[in-house]
Design a protein around this nucleic acid. Structure first.
Lengths: 239, 239
DNA sequence: AGCCATATAACAGTATACGGAAATTAGGAT
DNA sequence: ATCCTAATTTCCGTATACTGTTATATGGCT
């Protein structure tokens, strides 16, 4: 309803953005503007502009050899979680206060999927349900800038999210903390929501920190075969 | 030291960004890519990409007839100040703790200029000194993401900043609150810095709110002459 | 004189083309 | 075999050209 014809840049941007959100682009993938352009059937410019926009928002990093997902350092984790602790507890409180019935249903649905996915080990479903969960409660925020800021800071972690769910014990703690948060939301208890969001964030930080160490360990191993990477295997799709 | 040759996009972007920060672009100016390109002696693409980047960061708004500075609604003010209250007090506390002697000197220098500018009514100098002040303390933050988030949220107000300084009484309160903040910084008193930053923010919010009403009032008057605007008078400079 | 239809111009979006820098690969010398 | 240098590829940055849409201006009608 905003525009009848969204521009090509917008289309490409949104698609890439959602791929990043769904962890479909790993830290070893290279996004090259010509490849993206070919995939979407456009010229280089729209693809390039979409990529540059993602760069300016911090979701990608421009290199001399294509665009890549930035690798988070431990310091990045510290900084980002300081920001999240600053924003999300209060936001959760506001969301709990203004939660709609529709959002409640979505939250519960997502929570069910998360529990199932935890049991079956379906990390892909887990990532998607996590996104639904987040969208449901941030959607109830009246402060849209706050909502988008929160979403942005969370999305910086999407590249390593899959690894976060690798360890079963860590994942269990994660799911439990989210269950507590879910209960607070359903009860529309602002104080509990704020508190449990804070707890959730501390749990998430340690989970990400261990995931980061795991990844760096793997990277040190993989570093043997002259650092070559399978480039764009995911993006160049022969239609 | 980062790159020997910053790209044209980068140059254009930085220049436009600092113009916006210095309130050199008003809400009635139109930025057109061809004009910008001509001014910087480049083709349309670098100018366009710089403008688009400013759009994606929220500093500009793309219309069918050039790029303009977005007009803030009262709701925008509410949202933005909610975010600022969330971030800046704690950031001020951290900055007070980690303040360098160099930053102290800059802060005091800026404060002196602000007081002088307040006395003489030189709003231009006031805007510049305000920027120096902000840069000094945010520069001491170890969390760079926090620093840039704060700067971004502040910069959304630059378009109406000049008007904020129009009313003498309001300006006096503003300068006084900033003086208190300055003292807390110099004493490296984190708690006082946090408290005074919060007070400063509430003072700033009311100042901006009155400024906004003033502008809207003027706009309602100006709306008579068929809405035509002097376009790009500031940007098309015959070299 | 004021209003509506048509023509014109301004401007964003997109496509294509070229140049240059960095990384990779190939080749030759030690 | 290993290192260094040269050729090549890859891919970004920039320039130019074209198209479609929207605002503005022009002219006729009431």
């Amino acid at each position: 309803m905003i525009t009848a014809t969204p521009s090509l840049v917008e289309t490409v941007y949104q698609t890439l953005r959602s791929r990043l959100q769904l962890s479909e682009v790993g830290v070893f993938d290279r996004l090259v503007d010509t490849d993206v352009a070919r995939e979407f059937g456009t010229s280089r410019m729209p693809a390039r502009e979409a990529l540059l926009r993602l760069v300016s928002e911090g979701f990608l990093e421009g290199t001399t050899r294509g665009f890549v997902v930035p690798r988070l350092t431990p310091e990045d984790l510290t900084d980002l979680f300081e920001l999240r602790r600053q924003l999300e507890p209060r936001a959760a409180a506001a969301a709990a206060r203004d939660l709609t019935d529709e959002a409640k249903a979505t939250l519960s649905g997502a929570m069910t999927v998360i529990r199932e996915a935890h049991a079956t080990g379906d990390v892909g479903a887990m990532v998607r349900a996590n996104l639904d969960f987040r969208r449901a409660w941030t959607g109830c925020l009246t402060n849209r800038r706050l909502a988008s800021a929160i979403s942005r800071y969370i999305d910086y972690f999407q590249a390593i999210r899959l690894q976060t769910f690798a360890d079963l014990a860590t994942r269990g703690g994660y799911v439990a903390a989210m269950g507590d948060l879910h209960d607070a939301f359903l009860a529309r208890d602002s104080l509990a929501a704020a508190d449990r969001m804070m707890l959730f964030l501390f749990a998430a930080e340690t989970a990400y920190r261990t995931a980061l160490e795991t990844i760096e360990g793997e990277a040190a191993e993989n570093h043997k075969p002259s650092g070559r990477r399978r480039s764009g295997a995911k993006h160049t799709r022969e239609q």
